[in-house]
Computed example of a mutant assay.
Amino acid sequence: MTITKEQNDVPTLQASSEFDLSTYLGSYKKLVEEALDGFLPVQYPEKIYEAMRYSLLAGGKRLRPILCLSSCLMMGGTVEMATPTACALEMVHTMSLIHDDLPAMDNDDYRRGLLTNHKKFGEDIAILAGDGLLVFAFEAIASHTQGVPCDRLLRCITLIAKAFGAEGVVGGQVVDLESEGKPDISLETLNYIHTHKTGALLEACVLSGAILAGASEQDLQNLSLYAANIGLAFQIVDDILDITQTQEQLGKTAGKDLQAQKATYPSLWGLEESRRQAHKLIEEAKAALSPYGKKALPLMAIADFITSRSY
C-alpha cells in the first residue's frame, strides 16, 4: 500500500506491493496536527489557550489519533468521519500528560524535549489547561463529527469517557501512585496499573474509529484483543526505554521510575525477558487482525513499530 492524496488533500490508501509505514505515519500526523491547530485557535483569555496549545501542538508521534483513523478506514469508514474523534483522543491524552507531569504526580520538568506545562505556565494554569482540553475533546466530537449515526457517536463518546475515568486512566493512576516505593508489587498489580493507565486509552483509540465506521461486535472483539496487546507491549517498551535511554533520546527525564521506586516490567522480569514478552504481545496483536488481510497492514505495521523503538 502507498499513500495518495485525494482532491481534498486527505491521505487515502491504495494497494501496492509494499506498505511504507514512515510515509503513512508522516501523512496522517500532518493531517492530525493541522486539524488540531484549527480546532483550538487562540482567543480571550489568551493565556489558557496558549497553555493548551503549547502541550497539544508540542509534537509527538500522534499514534493515538492515527490508530483511530486506521481502524475506521479498515472497517470501511472515512478519514472525515473520524478526524474529530482522533483529535479529541489526542486532546485527552495531552491532558493526561499535563496532569501526570505535575509536582503532585510524577513531578517532571520536561516532556517531548520541552519544559512541561507547569514549568512554562505555572501549576494553576497547567491544571486548567488540562481541564480545558478534556472538556473540549468531547465538544469536538459532538459538534464536528459528520456523517455518523447518533447511536454510534454516543457509543464512541461513552467509550472514551469510561477509558479515561475511574475505570480506566484515572483508576490506573491511583494504583500507580499508591504503589510507589513499595518493594513487593505483584505482576497482577503492575498489569492492572498499565492496562488501565496506558492500555485503556489505546483501546479506546482503536475501538472508537471502528465504532464510527459501523464495525460488527466480532470486529470490535478482534480489535479489542489487538489493542490490549499493543497497549501492554507499549508500556513494557516504555519501561525499558526509561532505563536504557538518555533524556535527550526520550525527550523527557530519564530514570524517573527508578528514582520514584516504581515497579516496572524490567524490575520484575529483567531486560531480556521484558523484550521477549513485548514481542510476544505484538505477535498476538497481529494475529487478531488476520481476518482482515491487506486492509490491516497499517495496524499491523504500527504494532511492529511499538517494539522497534530503539531499546
Rank of each mutant, 00 (worst) to 15 (best):
I3D: 11
I3T: 12
T12K: 10
S16M: 07
T23G: 09
T23H: 13
V32L: 08
E33N: 15
L36W: 08
F39E: 03
P45K: 02
K47F: 11
M52L: 00
L56P: 06
I66A: 07
I66C: 03
S71Q: 08
V79A: 12
E80Y: 02
E80P: 01
M81S: 13
T83K: 15
A86G: 09
L89I: 11
L89V: 14
E90F: 09
V92H: 07
H93L: 09
M105W: 06
D109I: 01
L115I: 12
H118M: 12
K119L: 05
K120A: 15
L134D: 04
V135H: 08
A137G: 06
E139P: 00
I141M: 10
S143F: 06
T145I: 03
L154Y: 10
I157H: 02
L159K: 13
G168F: 07
G172K: 12
V175E: 07
E178H: 10
S179L: 12
L187D: 06
N191S: 13
T198V: 07
T198N: 07
G199S: 01
A200E: 06
L207T: 05
S208L: 02
L212A: 13
G214Q: 12
A215T: 08
S216P: 13
E217D: 09
Q218E: 04
Q221M: 11
N222G: 08
L223H: 09
L223N: 07
L223W: 06
L223F: 13
S224T: 15
L225T: 14
N229F: 05
N229K: 14
I230F: 10
I230D: 05
G231L: 14
D238N: 12
D238A: 14
D239C: 15
D242V: 06
D242H: 09
L258M: 15
A260Y: 01
A263I: 05
S267T: 05
W269F: 09
E273D: 14
H279C: 09
H279R: 12
K280H: 15
I282S: 04
I282N: 14
E284Q: 10
A287S: 14
A288T: 10
G293M: 14
P298I: 04
I302A: 06
I302H: 05
R309Q: 07
